[in-house]
Lab assay of single mutants.
Amino acid sequence: SYYEILDVPRSASADDIKKAYRRKALQWHPDKNPDNKEFAEKKFKEVAEAYEVLSDKHKREIYDR
């Protein structure tokens, strides 16, 4: 789930989600993982997609249904 990707509970606040996104984006940024760039790019995209949905109140409500 998007919550698992960002490592936050379903009850996470918008601020918690933003902090988790920043932490995970740094962790999986391809430039930070030169030895495993392809895998890092995949993870980085997953993190971005999760944040896009969970950071938008309307999209998150739909996702949580």
Rank of each mutant, 00 (worst) to 15 (best):
S1W: 10
S1L: 10
S1K: 07
S1G: 14
S1A: 10
Y2E: 01
Y2K: 03
Y2M: 07
Y2L: 10
Y2R: 02
Y2I: 03
Y3S: 00
Y3A: 00
Y3K: 00
Y3N: 00
Y3T: 00
Y3P: 00
Y3M: 00
E4W: 09
E4H: 11
E4G: 09
E4Q: 12
E4V: 12
I5M: 07
I5Y: 07
I5L: 09
I5T: 07
L6C: 01
L6W: 00
L6N: 00
L6Y: 00
L6G: 00
L6I: 04
D7A: 09
D7Q: 11
D7F: 04
D7V: 03
D7E: 13
D7R: 04
D7P: 00
D7G: 15
D7I: 02
D7W: 04
V8P: 00
V8D: 00
V8E: 01
V8F: 00
V8T: 03
V8R: 00
V8C: 08
V8W: 00
P9T: 07
P9M: 07
P9R: 07
P9I: 05
R10T: 11
R10F: 13
R10C: 13
R10N: 08
R10L: 08
R10M: 10
R10V: 11
R10A: 08
R10G: 06
S11Y: 13
S11T: 14
S11L: 14
S11E: 13
S11M: 12
S11H: 14
A12T: 02
A12L: 01
A12S: 07
A12P: 03
A12R: 00
A12M: 01
S13F: 04
S13I: 04
S13K: 07
S13E: 05
S13L: 05
A14K: 08
A14T: 13
A14W: 05
A14S: 13
A14D: 14
D15W: 11
D15C: 09
D15E: 14
D15P: 06
D15Q: 09
D16F: 08
D16S: 07
D16H: 06
D16R: 07
D16G: 04
D16Q: 13
D16W: 07
D16E: 13
D16V: 09
D16A: 09
D16M: 12
D16L: 08
I17T: 01
I17A: 00
I17K: 05
I17R: 00
I17S: 00
K18L: 15
K18Y: 14
K18T: 14
K18A: 14
K18W: 10
K18C: 12
K19Q: 12
K19W: 08
K19I: 12
K19G: 07
K19D: 15
K19C: 11
K19Y: 06
K19E: 15
K19M: 12
A20F: 01
A20V: 01
A20G: 05
A20Y: 02
A20W: 01
A20Q: 05
Y21P: 00
Y21K: 02
Y21R: 02
Y21I: 02
Y21V: 02
Y21L: 04
R22P: 02
R22H: 14
R22Y: 15
R22D: 15
R22L: 15
R22E: 15
R23C: 11
R23F: 09
R23T: 12
R23M: 11
R23Q: 13
R23D: 14
K24E: 04
K24I: 06
K24F: 06
K24M: 15
A25V: 14
A25N: 06
A25H: 11
A25K: 12
A25C: 14
A25S: 14
A25D: 03
A25F: 13
A25Y: 15
L26A: 14
L26G: 09
L26Y: 09
L26N: 11
L26T: 10
Q27A: 08
Q27N: 04
Q27W: 07
Q27K: 08
W28I: 03
W28Q: 02
W28Y: 15
H29A: 13
H29K: 06
H29E: 08
H29M: 10
H29Q: 10
H29G: 09
H29N: 13
H29F: 06
P30K: 06
P30A: 08
P30M: 06
P30C: 05
P30Q: 06
P30E: 06
P30N: 04
P30Y: 05
D31S: 12
D31W: 05
D31V: 06
D31E: 12
D31K: 08
D31M: 12
D31Q: 08
D31I: 07
K32T: 15
K32F: 14
K32I: 09
K32G: 09
K32Q: 13
K32Y: 15
K32V: 11
K32R: 14
K32E: 10
N33S: 06
N33C: 07
N33E: 03
P34Q: 15
P34T: 13
P34E: 12
P34W: 11
P34R: 12
P34C: 10
P34G: 10
P34A: 10
P34D: 08
D35T: 12
D35P: 05
D35F: 15
D35C: 13
D35E: 14
D35I: 10
D35Y: 10
D35N: 08
D35S: 12
N36Y: 08
N36T: 08
N36Q: 14
N36E: 08
N36L: 07
K37Y: 11
K37W: 12
K37M: 11
K37D: 05
K37Q: 12
K37P: 09
K37L: 12
E38W: 08
E38T: 10
E38G: 08
E38N: 09
E38V: 10
E38Q: 12
F39W: 15
F39T: 07
F39A: 14
F39P: 04
F39C: 09
F39G: 07
F39Y: 14
F39S: 05
F39H: 11
F39R: 07
F39I: 12
A40Q: 06
A40F: 08
A40L: 05
A40K: 03
A40W: 06
A40N: 05
E41M: 14
E41K: 12
E41A: 14
E41R: 11
E41Q: 13
E41V: 11
E41S: 12
K42M: 11
K42E: 13
K42D: 06
K42S: 11
K42Q: 14
K42Y: 13
K43M: 12
K43G: 03
K43F: 07
F44Y: 13
F44H: 06
F44M: 15
F44S: 10
F44Q: 06
F44G: 05
K45C: 10
K45H: 09
K45V: 07
K45T: 08
K45W: 07
E46R: 05
E46N: 05
E46A: 10
E46C: 09
E46H: 06
E46W: 06
E46M: 10
V47F: 05
V47I: 14
V47E: 01
V47G: 02
V47D: 00
A48T: 13
A48L: 13
A48E: 15
E49D: 10
E49P: 01
E49F: 07
E49I: 10
E49G: 05
E49N: 07
E49T: 10
A50R: 01
A50H: 00
A50N: 00
A50G: 01
A50W: 01
A50P: 00
A50V: 03
Y51R: 01
Y51T: 02
Y51W: 09
Y51V: 03
E52Y: 09
E52F: 10
E52M: 11
E52N: 11
E52D: 14
E52W: 13
V53R: 03
V53F: 04
V53Q: 04
V53D: 02
V53H: 07
V53S: 03
V53E: 03
L54D: 00
L54T: 02
L54F: 01
L54I: 03
L54A: 00
S55N: 08
S55Q: 06
S55T: 05
S55D: 04
S55L: 04
S55I: 10
S55W: 04
S55V: 07
D56N: 08
D56E: 04
D56C: 05
D56G: 03
D56P: 01
D56I: 03
D56S: 05
K57F: 09
K57C: 09
K57G: 09
K57V: 14
K57S: 14
K57H: 13
H58N: 15
H58R: 12
H58E: 13
H58D: 14
H58M: 11
H58C: 13
K59H: 06
K59Q: 10
K59D: 04
K59V: 04
K59Y: 05
R60C: 03
R60T: 02
R60K: 12
R60M: 03
R60E: 02
R60L: 02
R60F: 02
R60Y: 03
R60S: 02
E61Y: 10
E61P: 04
E61K: 07
E61M: 08
E61W: 08
I62M: 12
I62L: 15
I62D: 13
I62S: 08
I62Y: 12
I62W: 11
I62R: 10
Y63C: 03
Y63E: 02
Y63V: 02
Y63M: 01
Y63H: 03
Y63R: 02
Y63G: 01
Y63Q: 02
Y63S: 02
Y63I: 03
D64V: 01
D64C: 03
D64R: 01
D64K: 02
R65E: 10
R65A: 14
R65N: 15
R65T: 12
R65I: 11
R65V: 09
